[in-house]
């Protein structure tokens, strides 16, 4: 339910195995091989980075909170498990997901305002007609079976902050790791508390001196994280020994005691590592061009 992740539609209907996700995507490809050949798109994660940057631009002009953007990102991901992206106008889906998420997260924006802002950002792809967003909203809600309540890891993070006596720097870093996880499939693969624990581990273990170095130039951090993940694994299996500093020991002790699925936490750390690695290849221009060509050739903006 709304407060209870374990009884939620998110857990019942929107949690996939990696295999299942791959299967779904493969089936889209099978159905329309021609489109896939003619309209290659960047790696899903690179597209997600692009979508996220566009959402932030849209949200900024309306001073939207992060949680609404996070919900919009989850809606987009869910939607594209039901629909092949090559049959949609992603800019319209993005705008609509944003519009719907704002209502759901109690910071509603008027549809006219959202459409005019979206049109200012992407004049080629958004027509000045609110009914397009209205219609796409039906499509989104229907594909998600009106299961619109999303559980985010932010809440677990703030609940664990006092318990693990996290510093405000650590919380800030964990928060940005959570922001980043929406760029991967993680929110479709693991429950929010796994992501929160992963983010806390990353924040406490790596503690980068400055947060600004975190995005983009991720390769060194990625390497450090991979080793760090191993360290935790090692420490968990070997509870004696000199081991890591007390702060990390405390976290490890908590992890061992809690019934958190450690394997899932490690896997999600690895997912994040590979995100930072693939980030190197990100090119906004490339995403924009490939999407633009697809939309125009297939008249998806009409």
């Amino acid at each position: 339910m709304a407060a209870n992740y374990w009884a939620s539609t998110q857990r019942k209907h929107w949690l996939f195995t990696r295999e299942r996700l791959a299967e779904i995507r493969e089936s889209f490809k099978e159905k329309d091989k021609a489109s896939h050949t003619h309209f290659p798109l960047p790696d899903q994660r690179l597209l997600n980075i692009y979508f996220n940057q566009q959402l932030i631009k849209l949200g900024k002009r309306m001073s939207t909170r992060q949680q609404a953007l996070a919900t919009a990102q989850v809606y987009i991901k869910r939607y594209y498990t039901k629909n092949e992206i090559r049959n949609t106008n992603p800019y319209l889906v993005l705008t609509t997901a944003f519009y719907l998420a704002c209502k759901m997260e109690e910071c509603p924006q008027h549809i006219r305002f959202v459409v005019s802002e979206a049109r200012a950002l992407w004049p080629e792809f958004i027509v000045p007609d609110v009914s397009k967003v209205g219609e796409c909203e039906f499509s989104l809600i229907s594909e998600m079976q009106a299961q619109l309540i999303v559980h985010h890891p932010y809440r677990t993070l703030s609940e664990l902050q006092p318990e693990l006596s996290l510093t405000s720097d650590e919380v800030a870093l964990a928060w940005s790791v959570i922001n980043d996880h929406y760029l991967t499939d993680l929110s479709l693969l693991y429950p929010p508390h796994i992501i929160a624990v992963m983010a806390i581990i990353v924040a406490v273990v790596f503690k980068p001196s400055s947060q600004t170095a975190f995005h983009g130039s991720a390769a060194p951090i990625a390497g450090a994280m991979r080793d760090g993940g191993m360290n935790i694994l090692a420490a968990l299996s070997d509870k004696g020994g000199a081991g890591p500093p007390p702060r990390i020991q405390k976290l490890i002790a908590w992890l061992a005691e809690s019934e958190v699925d450690i394997k899932a936490v490690i896997e999600s750390t690895q997912e994040l590592v590979s995100l930072y690695e693939v980030w190197e290849q990100y090119s906004e221009k490339n995403c924009k061009e490939l999407l633009g060509r697809m939309i125009r050739s297939k008249s998806l903006d009409k």
Binding site: A2, K103, G134, E137, I141, A146, L148, I149
Partner: peptide
């Protein structure tokens, strides 16, 4: 026309789907 759904309709749909 499609004019965007009201927030209360959205809430009711989302809550009723979730509640049991």
């Amino acid at each position: 026309q499609y004019t965007g759904l009201s927030q209360s309709a959205i809430r009711e749909m989302a809550l009723c789907s979730e509640l049991d």
